[in-house]
Deep mutational scan, measured.
Amino acid sequence: MLYVKVKTEDGEELVLEVEGMTEDEIREELAKAGFKIEEIEVYEVEP
């Protein structure tokens, strides 16, 4: 499983499960949803 931890400019932290997306695609999708991203951390969790 691939997850991203996202910190927004307003200090909110989100953890999202993503599969088959690049970091650029993740940033693009979050921007479309109205999030202003300060930091993204991508990590993989073994089942």
Rank of each mutant, 00 (worst) to 15 (best):
V6G: 02
E38A: 14
V45N: 09
E46H: 12
A33K: 14
D24T: 10
E13N: 05
E46D: 13
E29Q: 10
G34Y: 02
Y43D: 02
T8W: 06
T22S: 09
K5I: 09
T8H: 03
V42C: 03
E29P: 00
E29Y: 15
E25D: 06
I26S: 00
E38H: 11
E29D: 04
L16F: 14
M21V: 06
E39P: 02
L16H: 02
K5H: 08
A33I: 11
E19I: 14
V6M: 04
L2E: 02
A31M: 11
E44Y: 13
Y43I: 08
V6S: 00
E17K: 14
I37Q: 07
E23A: 13
E41T: 11
L30P: 00
T8Q: 05
P47Q: 09
K32S: 06
K36F: 07
E13R: 04
L14K: 04
E28A: 13
L14Y: 10
K36G: 04
T8C: 15
L16N: 00
I37S: 06
M21R: 14
L30R: 00
L14W: 11
E46R: 07
E39K: 11
L14M: 11
I40D: 01
D10G: 08
Y43L: 10
A33N: 07
R27H: 04
P47G: 10
L14S: 02
E19Y: 14
A33Y: 15
E9R: 11
L2S: 10
M1D: 02
R27M: 07
E44Q: 09
D10T: 12
Y43H: 06
T22E: 04
Y43F: 13
R27F: 07
E23V: 14
L2K: 15
F35E: 00
I26A: 05
L30D: 00
M21D: 02
E44G: 08
E13F: 14
K36W: 05
V42F: 15
E17F: 15
V4F: 04
I40G: 02
G20A: 07
E44P: 09
R27Q: 03
V42L: 09
T22R: 03
E17G: 07
V4Q: 00
L2Q: 08
I26D: 00
P47E: 07
R27W: 08
E17V: 15
G11P: 00
A31I: 13
E39W: 15
E44C: 11
E13Y: 15
K36M: 10
E19K: 11
I37V: 11
E29K: 12
G20V: 05
E28L: 09
M21Y: 12
F35T: 01
K5P: 01
T8S: 05
A31G: 09
E19Q: 14
K32G: 04
E46Y: 15
R27P: 00
E38P: 02
M21P: 02
E41C: 08
L16E: 00
E29R: 08
T8A: 03
T8G: 10
Y3F: 10
E46A: 12
E39L: 14
K5C: 06
M21Q: 06
F35D: 00
L16W: 11
L2G: 04
G20M: 07
R27S: 02
D10M: 07
E38F: 13
P47C: 09
V18H: 01
E38L: 15
Y3N: 04
M1R: 14
V45F: 12
V6P: 00
Y3D: 01
G20F: 11
M21L: 10
V4N: 00
V4W: 03
V6C: 05
E23K: 09
M21S: 06
D10L: 07
E13V: 14
E46G: 11
E23W: 12
E44R: 11
V18Y: 15
F35V: 06
L14A: 03
E44V: 11
D10R: 08
E19T: 15
E9C: 05
V15F: 13
E41N: 08
K7T: 13
I37C: 11
K7M: 07
E19V: 14
L16V: 06
Y3C: 03
E12F: 15
K32I: 07
E38V: 15
I37D: 08
G11S: 02
E41K: 07
K36Q: 06
G11E: 01
E28C: 04
D10C: 12
E38M: 15
L30Q: 00
T8V: 04
L2H: 13
E13T: 13
E41M: 11
I40W: 06
E9G: 10
Y43S: 08
P47D: 08
K7Q: 06
E13C: 15
I26H: 00
G20E: 03
D24I: 08
E19F: 15
D24A: 13
T22V: 02
K7S: 05
Y43P: 02
E28Q: 11
T8F: 14
A33R: 15
G20H: 07
V18L: 06
K36L: 08
E44M: 12
M21A: 06
L30A: 02
V4G: 00
L16A: 01
V42K: 05
Y43G: 05
K7H: 09
R27Y: 08
L16Q: 01
I37G: 05
R27D: 01
K36I: 08
G34V: 01
E19L: 13
A33M: 15
I40C: 10
K32D: 03
E39Q: 12
A33T: 06
E41S: 10
E9T: 12
T22N: 08
P47T: 11
E19G: 12
Y43A: 04
E17N: 08
E46L: 13
A33G: 04
K32Y: 05
G34H: 03
V6D: 00
E41I: 14
V18T: 04
K32H: 06
E13W: 13
E29M: 15
G34C: 06
V15E: 04
D24N: 12
M21K: 12
A31S: 11
E39T: 14
V4T: 00
I26R: 00
Y3W: 14
E12R: 15
A31R: 12
K32R: 09
V42D: 02
Y3P: 01
E25P: 00
V15Y: 12
G20L: 06
L30K: 00
L30G: 01
V42S: 04
E41D: 09
K7D: 02
F35Y: 12
L2N: 05
V42P: 05
L14F: 14
V15R: 06
L16D: 00
K7Y: 11
T22C: 04
V6K: 00
E13H: 09
I26F: 03
E9L: 11
I40F: 09
A31Q: 13
V45P: 08
E28V: 09
K7A: 04
G11T: 01
K5Q: 04
A31E: 11
L30E: 00
A33P: 01
E44K: 07
V4D: 01
L14Q: 04
E44T: 10
F35I: 11
K36H: 08
I26L: 07
F35Q: 01
E9N: 12
I26K: 00
E9I: 14
M1W: 13
G20K: 06
E44L: 11
V45A: 08
V18A: 03
D10S: 12
L30W: 04
E19H: 14
D24G: 09
Y43K: 06
E39G: 07
M21G: 07
G20D: 06
E13Q: 07
L16I: 09
E23C: 13
V42Q: 03
E17Q: 13
D10W: 11
V18K: 03
E9H: 09
V4P: 00
A33L: 15
F35M: 04
M1E: 03
I26W: 09
R27E: 03
F35N: 02
V4H: 00
L16Y: 11
E41A: 10
L2W: 14
Y43Q: 04
G34D: 02
I26P: 00
E44A: 13
E13P: 03
E46F: 13
K36R: 10
V6I: 12
D10P: 01
E44H: 13
L30N: 00
K5Y: 09
Y3M: 08
T22P: 02
V4Y: 06
V45C: 06
Y3I: 14
G11F: 01
E17I: 15
I37A: 07
E41Q: 09
V6H: 01
P47S: 09
P47A: 07
G11C: 09
R27K: 10
E19A: 12
E25G: 03
V42Y: 14
E12A: 12
E25N: 05
E23I: 15
E19N: 11
M21N: 05
I40E: 01
K5F: 07
P47L: 10
V18S: 02
V18M: 11
E39V: 13
G11L: 02
E41Y: 15
A33E: 05
M21E: 04
E17Y: 15
A31D: 04
K5V: 09
V18C: 11
G11V: 01
E29V: 14
D24F: 10
T8P: 02
E25L: 05
D24M: 10
L30Y: 05
D24K: 10
E25S: 05
V45H: 12
L2A: 06
E38N: 12
V45D: 08
I37F: 08
A31C: 13
T8I: 05
V15L: 12
V18Q: 01
T22H: 03
Y3G: 03
L14H: 06
V42A: 04
V15S: 04
D24V: 12
I40T: 02
L16S: 01
V4I: 08
L2F: 14
V15Q: 04
F35L: 07
R27A: 03
F35C: 05
T22A: 03
G34N: 03
K5S: 04
D10K: 10
D24R: 11
K7C: 06
V6E: 00
V45W: 11
A33V: 07
G20R: 08
V42N: 03
E12P: 03
E39S: 15
Y43C: 03
Y43E: 03
E19P: 05
V18W: 08
E44N: 10
G34P: 03
Y3E: 03
R27C: 05
I37L: 07
E9P: 13
I40P: 01
V15C: 15
E13L: 10
L16K: 01
